[in-house]
């Protein structure tokens, strides 16, 4: 396509030497990564919905007034809140990676890493608690 000599000058500066320029392979890998991350987030949303139904069922059958019913509902609500946060950060990370790669912008990519970090912190804490619970079950 020929360049229009009457076009106004673009405001975007030319890409810096040695900056972020993704190859088609890199774009394909990140695009695919973002799709799988979003796919996993859909399953997380389904699990959150099932946990919500379970807590409603618990309220209907056991009732929140009893200590057992109240404990189950509080546990499910906390688990749902944690999973909602993790799912949102996973989706944000996927969007950040995809936008950063398509625009060759390291700032947007950095934002994706920030969201991925929070997602990994949530699962890191869950992993530590899970390991401690397993050790407790063996020792106790």
């Amino acid at each position: 396509m020929e360049q229009n000599p009457f076009a106004p000058p673009t405001s975007a500066p030319p890409p810096a030497e040695g900056g972020l320029v993704f190859s088609s392979e890199g774009v394909e890998v990140v695009s695919s990564l973002a799709k799988w991350m979003r796919g996993l987030s859909v399953f997380y949303f389904i699990f959150i919905g099932l946990a919500g139904l379970l807590s409603c069922g618990t309220v209907a059958t056991v009732g929140v007034g009893s200590a057992r019913g109240g404990g189950i509902v509080i546990g499910l609500v906390v688990a749902m809140a944690v999973m909602i946060a993790a799912t949102m950060f996973l989706r944000e990370a996927a969007s950040g990676f995809e936008r950063g790669v398509y625009s060759d912008d390291e700032m947007t990519l950095g934002a994706g890493f920030r969201s991925l970090r929070i997602y990994l912190i949530i699962f890191g804490v869950i992993g530590i608690l899970s390991a401690l619970r397993t050790i407790w079950a063996i020792v106790g």
Binding site: L20, G110, F113
Partner: peptide, 8 residues
């Protein structure tokens, strides 16, 4: 190298 900021 990628010019990530120090914070990133």
């Amino acid at each position: 190298r990628i010019p990530f900021t120090r914070e990133d």
